[in-house]
Design a protein around this nucleic acid. Structure first.
Length: 573
RNA sequence: GCAUCGAUGGUCUAGUGGCAUGACUUUGGCCUUCCAAGCCAAUAGCCCGGGUUCGAAUCCCGGUCGAUGCACCA
């Protein structure tokens, strides 16, 4: 029982943070339940994320269904790209990635090869596991998306979304109008996503149903300067660049301003959200000395992303684990949805001063063209408009035939056209957070065991604003009116929006320890002095120090302690 | 998915083909004027399904979950 993961998860189970799902039927890997304290802590972390992205950045939250219809994921590439072709060795039973096996066997397969075609190639290849020639076998698709059907009759395919991002893309037109046709703007979503992992292990780290918090920020492709960049220009974060990885070196701290100037981070937007992410991760309780930002190497980057960074935390159990991905997805997603849906997903950006252009326009005289060319008239007219007429008229190539159009079939007009702006497909900056992993990271980094007077004290040093229970209230003894007094104080604190736990059971020390273990930052004790001087003590979880404060103004004092606006020593009178 | 190992109250654990240990926790009571004190009592358990057997928590088979290795991880 020395393993940190075991210790943390044991506590999380026992005290109601994380439970195996549907335990009475034996649970399933890749799914978890959040218990009472876990659900509250998760909510607080999500709200802190909202404080940054929705309130400070001004990117409103939307909520799309978790089930998406098939065309959405055809356009996004998930139907094709999210599936692996798998096969099983008929001799040793090893489960293999078909394409990897083909490649490692020195053979070639066309990119879009079907299962049958790949199976044929595989027949000649020895199994990488047992060495026997594979021979005839079946290759099957394993799509990481959960599939379902919509409505009775099973006609319409649906998928549980593998990321929340698509909702922001499919709502792009509406969002654009909501933000009154101006760039940049952004939208966020916090919600469940689903991936049917082949073999999830590592508990909370790889789930089949997980919570993502994603922001999609739509920016001008040529103006990737964040308007508030100065806020983070001097902010330092440990960067593990692609170059450093190739030299097998560790991360080194760099300011965002320098990183952009030297071209290490491709633009201010990516750098800004990288710093903001660091800010958030530290604020929720992850140790700053165990955070790094790793740049994707060119071969692991999705082909459309120009720059991609993962925020990782170091786990004593799992090593470096990805928590957040920050990518510049360019115009890939919007272009894909535009071409699949047939809608134009662009922003009209007016120029500061409209340009005027002289244009010579060919205007076909349809009243003459119609009778002459009949069904082909429309086609001819369209072709004429793109040509430059000469004095002899226009010569067109129509279905391989030369057609002469005399000048009496059209007019040529000189026009002054005013060009007020241009249609632009925005680029997308996407910070994508794995909330469940962040919760695990916080639990692991905040968990501590320390020796106090020969006994082990387990304490969860959660930041006060993340702790599920914010303050505990105890009567020193459950009698002499101390209990009633303590109950009144607990009620009034609850009335001011704090989550309070009242406890009169057992020795006072035991009650403190119970709260230590679930991370409650402050404990208020009503003692005999309270009756005389109308004061109580506030005990700090981490230092175990107590400060005596007046009951008058207690709510405000506790609220500012929990918000992190005051330190306990400043309440000393 | 394959291979190996494992699964006993909430937690940690003893143990066995025939009444299932102990400790901690929790709850109630007594006691107690600040860090898991003490005393009394109570609650609560053999992962699930099938087989063998007079009898299975124990042996066998299958499944689930967990650990480790391999594979997988957009």
């Amino acid at each position: 029982m020395s393993d940190i993961y075991e210790n943390v998860m044991e506590l999380a189970r026992r005290r109601g943070f994380i439970w195996p799902t549907a335990e009475c039927y034996g649970s399933v890997a890749g799914f978890i339940d959040y218990g009472p304290l876990g659900a509250m802590m998760k909510r607080r972390i999500e709200n802190l994320w909202r404080d940054f992205y929705v309130i400070r950045e001004g990117y409103y939250e939307i909520e799309a269904p978790t089930i998406g219809i098939e065309p959405v994921f055809v356009a996004s590439g998930h139907v094709k790209g999210f599936s692996d072709k798998m096969c099983e060795c008929p001799h040793c039973g090893e489960y293999l990635r078909a394409d990897h096996t083909v490649a490692s066997g020195g053979e070639d397969c066309p990119a879009g090869a079907s299962c049958e075609e790949i199976a044929k190639v595989l027949e000649r290849i020895p199994c990488p596991s047992c060495g026997t020639k594979l021979g005839p076998l079946v290759v099957s698709e394993f799509n990481l998306m959960f599939q379902t059907t919509i409505g009775p009759g099973s006609l319409r395919k649906g998928y549980l979304r593998p990321e929340t991002a698509q909702g922001m893309f499919t709502d792009f037109g509406r969002l654009l109008r909501f933000y009154r046709d101006k760039l940049p703007f952004g939208a966020v979503q916090i919600g469940k996503s689903y991936r049917n992992e082949i073999s999830p292990r590592q508990g909370m780290i790889r789930l089949r149903e997980f919570t993502q918090a994603e922001a999609e920020i739509f920016v001008h492709p040529k103006k990737k300067n964040h308007p508030q960049f100065c806020r983070y220009a001097a902010y330092e974060a440990p960067l593990l660049t692609a170059a450093l990885q190739e030299k097998s070196m560790g991360s080194s701290p760099l300011s965002m301003g320098d990183a952009v100037r030297s071209g290490i981070i491709s633009n201010e937007y990516v750098a800004y959200y990288l710093a903001l992410t660091h800010d958030i991760l530290v604020k929720v309780g992850i140790r700053p000395d165990r955070i790094r930002f790793r740049q994707h190497l060119s071969d692991e980057r999705a082909h459309y992303a120009t720059d991609c960074w993962d925020a990782e935390f170091f786990s004593d159990r799992f090593g470096w684990v990805e928590l957040v991905g920050i990518a510049d997805r360019t115009d890939y997603d919007l272009k894909a949805h535009a071409s699949h849906s047939g809608l134009s997903l662009t922003v009209f950006l007016p120029y500061d001063t409209p340009r005027t252009e002289q244009k010579r326009r060919v205007i076909p005289r349809m009243d003459v063209l119609g009778p002459r060319f009949r069904k082909q008239a429309k086609e001819v007219a369209a072709a004429m408009e793109t040509t430059t007429p000469t004095e002899e008229g226009i010569t067109l190539t129509l279905n391989g035939e030369q057609v002469r159009i005399p000048s009496d079939l059209y007019e040529v007009r000189e026009e002054t056209v005013e060009i007020r702006g241009e249609e632009v497909t925005p680029h997308v900056i996407e910070p994508s957070y794995g909330i469940d992993r962040i919760i695990y990271a916080v639990l692991e980094h905040c968990y501590a065991e320390e020796l106090v007077e020969g006994e082990v004290r387990k304490v969860l040093r959660l930041p006060p604003w993340i702790a599920p229970i914010q303050v505990a209230v105890f009567p020193l003894m459950p009698r002499d009116g101390l209990d009633n007094l303590a109950r009144e104080i607990a009620d009034s604190l609850a009335g001011s929006g704090l989550l309070v736990e009242y406890d009169e059971n057992g020795a006072i020390g035991r009650r403190y320890r119970r709260q230590d273990e679930i991370g409650t930052p402050y404990a208020i004790t009503v003692d005999y002095e309270t009756k005389e001087t109308n004061t109580v003590t506030i005990r700090d979880r981490d230092s175990m120090q107590q400060v005596r404060v007046p009951v008058l103004g207690l709510e405000e004092a506790v609220r500012s302690l929990v918000a992190g606006d005051t330190a306990l020593e400043f309440l000393k009178t």
